[in-house]
């Protein structure tokens, strides 16, 4: 069925199934992700794209009735191994959510937070990591003069880029984004998108989006989900111009969704 990554994959998932109680919500997803580049997960509401994304960094662990099966291989390591160090895993696989969710701290503290708790970094190293992360998230120029002010005073778009910087500060390999611009206005969305394109060649970025224009604009690969199945994955160009499956064609041409 789907065409997967030819170059070296940083993350491979095989036969991923997810159950809400007895109900199966993901029906055996096989999907790989390259070391760099942006992969967009698109599909109608309820297609399972966010559910799949959240299974990658084990965010479903907190929901008692959710069960995930299948193979998740990250750099040779089984993500669902009982001995997996979740703290380390989530530092390596960062996540940004739909709603901007800055902590009620200063901008600086927000970005430094993930670093401070267990790394013994000097003040200089810390400053440097914070600055790098903010630059990568394309928010440094907006906030460099007010790092000690509360992040809650920023606009939604700025807060979302702070959230990206916060996730990047722990130097992850993979960045998961769950509809990161759906709560933002078009101009803020654009700023977030530009930031993502900037870093797309350094990280493996997986973005769930319901916005097909956005997928077209920023992603290198696109995976189309429907009803808990992965219908097709290919280069973004092929998905939008030469889709192989009927459902994909109908969806990207706007016949449903």
């Amino acid at each position: 069925m789907a065409e997967n990554v030819k170059e070296k994959a940083i993350l491979t998932t095989k036969d991923v199934r997810l159950f809400y109680g007895k109900k199966e919500a993901l029906h055996g997803i096989n999907l790989d992700f390259p070391e760099t580049g942006i992969t967009a997960l698109i599909g109608p509401s309820g297609s399972g794209k966010s559910t799949y994304l959240r299974s990658i960094n084990r965010m479903h662990d907190f929901t008692d009735y959710v069960k995930v099966t299948g193979e998740f291989n990250y750099n040779g390591q089984n993500i669902y191994d009982p001995n997996t160090d979740l703290t380390q895993l989530r530092k390596n696989i960062g996540m940004v959510f739909q709603q901007p969710n800055p902590f009620p701290f200063s901008i600086y503290e927000n970005v430094a937070f993930g670093l401070k708790l267990d790394n013994k970094l000097s003040k200089i190293e810390l400053d440097e990591r914070v600055e790098t992360a903010l630059k990568q998230a394309a928010i440094w120029d907006d906030v460099k003069d007010r790092l000690q002010q509360s992040a809650l005073g920023l606009s939604g778009g700025q807060q979302q880029r702070i959230a990206i910087a916060r996730a990047l500060a722990t130097r992850p390999d993979i960045l998961l984004l769950d509809e990161p611009t759906s709560a933002l206005d078009p101009i803020s969305s654009r700023a977030v998108e530009d930031g993502l394109v900037e870093i797309g060649d350094k990280y493996s970025i997986i973005i769930v989006t319901h916005n097909m224009q956005q997928a077209k604009r920023i992603s290198d690969r696109t995976a189309f989900f429907m009803d808990g199945n992965l219908i097709e994955v290919d280069s973004t160009k092929n998905i939008f111009l030469y889709p192989k499956e009927k459902e994909t064609e109908d969806y990207v041409s706007g016949k449903f969704g």
């Binding site: 965010m59 989530r90 530092k91 959510f97 969710n101 937070f113 993930g114 996730a167 722990t170």
Partner: peptide, 14 residues
């Protein structure tokens, strides 16, 4: 909001 808990956990904080 639960978002805050998710944000913390997703950062690899216990």
């Amino acid at each position: 909001p639960n978002l805050q808990r998710e944000a913390g956990v997703a950062l690899g904080i216990s």
